[in-house]
Nucleic acid binder design. Structure first.
Length: 455
RNA sequence: GGCAGGGUAGCCAAGUGGUAAGGCAGGAGUCUGCAAAACUUCCAUUCGCGGGUUCGAUUCCCGCCCCUGCCUCCA
């Protein structure tokens, strides 16, 4: 049973075979740090976190690299609007980024390079491109990539240059030889951040940073390159053009792209303004609910965001936690994963199918506990599956009892009610239960006493 | 216009050339003083529509309808 992944480059699933046995180099395009992350970013983080966890589970030594774009037009603009330094803005947003994705239980990559820390690599790559005639200095002084000179441009996204130009909405830029040419090095205007280069003071274009940083951390050729579907074109296409032209071939071998988060069947995005930040959602829902919501759909499919969908994800998680609460010894080691779970994950990280197997296991555990049997092995399987998916990692008691509830007060009520029950005064017992229910507190009378939880 | 992906029960969502996982919601039952939770059980003769290939298609092919995305910064 081995891993199969959908490779955008081939437009089909294929067996995953790393360049070097036992090792995987994986680069994922991160975020531009000018604002807080929204749910769309969260999906990308969670998707690749699950992929990372599964690759490690398979025994690979994964060198996971994810960048921060910390120099770009939007950052400059936002910093100016807020009247703060660029560094202050990017530092603030990187801190906010960690707050959000740590809450989502995403394991941090091994390397998280910042564009501003890799100027030398970018300049060196641009110099190679200029020397090899893949790049030129345009009329305005910017260094541009000559798309027509790169054979195979459009291969990743399935586009051909002539179609692009005929339907193009790109405004013909001053210094460009071809409307599709893109900027490698942008000359600085007064007051803009700038770095020295052979072409004058300026800053890198967006695309060059990922080519330069991925190659510098993972080598000219590496295994996996990932990101959101919207980066396929032109960003990833341009990355390929830059890296292969500069290095003479190679670059990423498997391209993985996650689908969007939609709202009312429409893409959630900054430009449409129909987005929710991760923080806005986690103020209302536990971050694990957001993660669970994302695992319920295959990573390449669109995912429709709504409160109803989050409520459903929460209900499913509650079921898992109910079972976790019944398991005396929660341990994620000591038993093999169910084969169905393994094959689901090996089939292009099919988390919905993996989740189905998790729920099957949960039913078996509950059934076993009800029958008074030992469910040790199944419990370990459940814990392992949950750990690999990054869910059900909270204490079960806290999961149900968190919030602004006075536990001692509830316990006192429970004691009073149980006394009433012992006295066969059910009217009084029910009155107490109703009083608690009015505060969204639900009681459960079990064989070993009464427990409570927040609705 | 070009290219890509998709239309599966009330909702969400997998999947397969051989007769439809799982979750949520809902019905019935067991348990319970009654509930809750758990368990049992029921809930798509059917997978956008129309053709075709096949012993057999939801799954392959053709046509049509509808939806979304990319083609411009975007996870």
């Amino acid at each position: 049973m081995s891993l199969v992944v959908y490779n955008t480059l081939k437009r089909k699933k294929e067996a995953f075979v790393p360049l070097v046995a036992g090792k995987v180099g994986m680069y994922v395009c991160g975020v531009t740090v000018y604002d807080r992350c929204h749910v769309g970013h969260a999906r990308m983080m969670v998707v690749f976190d699950v992929i990372y966890r599964w690759l490690r589970q398979l025994g690979f030594d994964v060198n996971y690299v994810r960048n921060f774009t910390d120099v770009d037009d939007k950052i400059i603009q936002r910093a100016a609007e807020r009247g703060i330094a660029i560094d202050a803005l990017t530092d603030e947003m990187i801190a906010a980024f960690y707050e959000d994705i740590d809450a989502l239980a995403c394991i941090r990559p091994r390397h998280e390079p910042r564009a501003t820390a890799h100027m030398d690599e970018m300049i060196a790559m641009i110099a190679k491109l200029v020397a090899a005639d893949y790049a030129y200095v345009g009329a305005g002084g910017d260094v541009l990539y000559a798309v027509r000179n790169f054979d195979g441009y459009g291969k990743l996204s399935g586009k051909n240059i002539d179609d692009l130009e005929s339907g193009s909405r790109v405004e013909v830029d001053e210094g460009k030889r071809d409307p599709l040419d893109f900027v490698l090095w942008k000359m600085a205007k007064a007051g803009e951040p700038a770095w020295d280069s052979p072409w004058g003071k300026g800053r890198p274009g967006w695309h060059i940073e990922c080519s330069a940083m991925s190659c510098s951390h993972l080598g000219d050729s590496f295994d996996i390159h990932g990101g959101g579907m919207d980066l396929k074109f032109p960003h990833h296409e341009n990355e390929i053009a830059q890296a292969q032209a500069a290095n003479g071939g190679g670059f990423a071998r498997y391209w993985l792209h996650n689908g969007f988060v939609n709202i009312n069947a429409e893409k959630m995005s900054k430009s449409l303004g129909n987005f929710f930040t991760i923080r806005e959602v986690t103020e209302k829902y536990h971050p694990e609910v957001l993660r669970m919501f994302m695992l319920g759909t295959h990573y390449r499919s669109p995912l429709d965001f709504s409160d109803a969908a989050l409520d459903t994800a929460k209900a499913g998680l509650d079921r898992l936690y109910e079972t976790k609460r019944r398991i005396a010894d929660w341990q994620a080691a000591g038993a093999d994963l169910p084969p169905a779970f393994v094959s689901a994950m090996n089939d292009d990280f099919n988390t919905p199918e993996a989740l189905a197997e998790l729920f099957e296991t949960v039913r078996a555990i509950n059934k076993g506990i009800d029958a008074g049997q030992d469910v040790g092995a199944a419990a370990v399987q459940m814990a392992r599956m949950c750990a690999l998916l990054g869910i059900v990692q909270q204490d079960a008691g806290l999961w149900f009892q968190s919030g602004d509830v006075d536990g001692e007060w509830v316990e006192a009520k429970i004691t009073a009610r149980n006394q009433a029950r012992a006295d066969r005064d059910f009217a009084r017992a029910d009155a107490i239960r109703d009083e608690l229910a009015g505060k969204d507190i639900i009681l459960e009378d079990g064989p070993s006493g009464t427990t409570w939880k927040k609705a």
